[in-house]
Simulated assay, not measured.
Amino acid sequence: MKLNELTSYLESLAPLAYQEDYDNAGLIVGRPEMEVHRALVSLDCTEAVVNEAIATNCQVIVSHHPIVFRGLKKFNGKTYVERVVEKAIRNNIAIYAIHTNLDNMIAGVNAKICETLGLKNCRILSPKHNLLKKLVTYAPQSHADTVRNALFAAGAGNIGNYSETSFNAEGTGTFKGNDQTNPYVGEPGKRHLENEVRIETVYPAILESKILMALVLNHPYEEVAYDLYSLTNQNQQVGSGMIGELDNALAEEAFLHHVKEKMHCHVIRHTEYTGKSVKRVAVCGGAGGFLLKQAIAAGADVFITGDYKYHEFFDADGKVLIADVGHFESEQFTQQLLYEIITKKFTNFAVRLTEVNTNPVKYFI
């Protein structure tokens, strides 16, 4: 299939618009129209992973972390980044990264951590704001269902676990067209009164052009009246970290043993025990120290993440147990998540998990 069939599907699940400002997710090497028959999934795209792709005849590498974060000015092989990009180009291998946009999805990286740890009743720890908008439009009663259905099909009306949500109120609309119009109802030059339905619905801002196109194409009027409102509401489907609960509370040491086993950790760096049992757990794959305040505010007994610095451990202040499992360890299951996503959608497309351990951190035990 064409590479853009794969990338478009991945971006429908984790839109590039939801990546953080510093990130570089998306197609890094390759042409969207190139043919691909086999994909290699990895956490990182290293030179060893590219070599594996060559050896296994994979035309595309789908990695979590982008190999390129900042612009490259020279390609002379002096850095591992340059060597990876050069080798991929020479061997016609595409590189695609799905990073913080996947981190920020409710069914993304952190959901996989929660699943691994057996957490229930999970929700996003720090939902993002200003991602939603509201559309208000007016349709004649005879076409209200048609307009609503078109908006829903285009992606409007989804709130959490509910779909096709809208508010509707009947009223009377007035309009008078000039002699250049050909109104659906009424006559040019005469004021017309029409029984109409006011339709209100919310939608992700990134779908605005698609939503408006559906509105215009399915509305009978020559000039479609509508209002757009920006919303500051939280989007409960998009944001950083997650928080969930254990079926049964555990003592802190017992819980850390559970984490070490389930997440295959060589070591866990943690703060002093608080003396409380563990029931509510906050997680953030990668470097999640910025979410500590949110974890405490949400009542987490433990906050699991990676890349904690020495002085940041003091910030727990006895209010929560911080458990630093390591960056790679916290995100290693992302490979399996991507494998499941791709194979479920493209049943005839060959996908393999990398056999390369890309963790740059080694442990002397």
Score class of each variant (00 low, 15 high):
residue 6 L to T: 08
residue 7 T to K: 05
residue 11 E to T: 02
residue 12 S to C: 07
residue 13 L to Q: 12
residue 13 L to N: 02
residue 18 Y to L: 09
residue 19 Q to W: 00
residue 23 D to W: 00
residue 32 P to F: 09
residue 36 V to L: 12
residue 46 T to K: 06
residue 49 V to Y: 05
residue 61 I to E: 05
residue 65 H to I: 06
residue 66 P to M: 07
residue 67 I to M: 03
residue 69 F to K: 04
residue 70 R to Q: 14
residue 75 F to E: 00
residue 84 V to I: 04
residue 85 V to Q: 02
residue 93 I to N: 04
residue 97 A to T: 01
residue 100 T to E: 00
residue 102 L to P: 02
residue 106 I to Y: 12
residue 108 G to L: 03
residue 117 L to H: 01
residue 120 K to F: 11
residue 120 K to H: 14
residue 122 C to Q: 11
residue 125 L to N: 04
residue 126 S to V: 13
residue 133 K to D: 09
residue 133 K to R: 14
residue 134 K to L: 08
residue 135 L to W: 00
residue 136 V to A: 10
residue 143 H to N: 12
residue 144 A to M: 08
residue 145 D to V: 13
residue 149 N to H: 14
residue 152 F to W: 12
residue 153 A to S: 15
residue 155 G to I: 03
residue 155 G to P: 07
residue 159 I to C: 07
residue 179 D to G: 05
residue 181 T to A: 09
residue 185 V to T: 15
residue 190 K to Q: 15
residue 192 H to N: 13
residue 199 I to A: 01
residue 199 I to P: 03
residue 204 P to F: 06
residue 207 L to A: 05
residue 208 E to V: 06
residue 210 K to M: 08
residue 213 M to N: 15
residue 215 L to P: 06
residue 217 L to T: 12
residue 220 P to S: 03
residue 223 E to D: 09
residue 225 A to V: 01
residue 225 A to S: 05
residue 229 Y to S: 08
residue 235 N to H: 11
residue 241 G to W: 06
residue 245 E to F: 13
residue 247 D to G: 13
residue 253 E to N: 14
residue 254 A to N: 13
residue 254 A to L: 13
residue 255 F to C: 09
residue 258 H to G: 11
residue 264 H to Q: 12
residue 266 H to N: 14
residue 267 V to Q: 15
residue 270 H to A: 10
residue 271 T to C: 10
residue 271 T to R: 11
residue 279 K to I: 09
residue 282 A to R: 02
residue 287 A to G: 00
residue 294 Q to G: 15
residue 295 A to F: 03
residue 297 A to H: 11
residue 299 G to I: 07
residue 299 G to N: 07
residue 300 A to Y: 02
residue 303 F to Y: 05
residue 304 I to D: 01
residue 309 K to N: 11
residue 310 Y to I: 02
residue 311 H to C: 07
residue 314 F to Q: 13
residue 323 A to D: 06
residue 324 D to Y: 00
residue 325 V to M: 00
residue 329 E to W: 05
residue 331 E to G: 04
residue 335 Q to I: 10
residue 350 A to D: 15
residue 352 R to A: 10
residue 359 N to H: 04
residue 360 P to W: 03
residue 364 F to M: 14
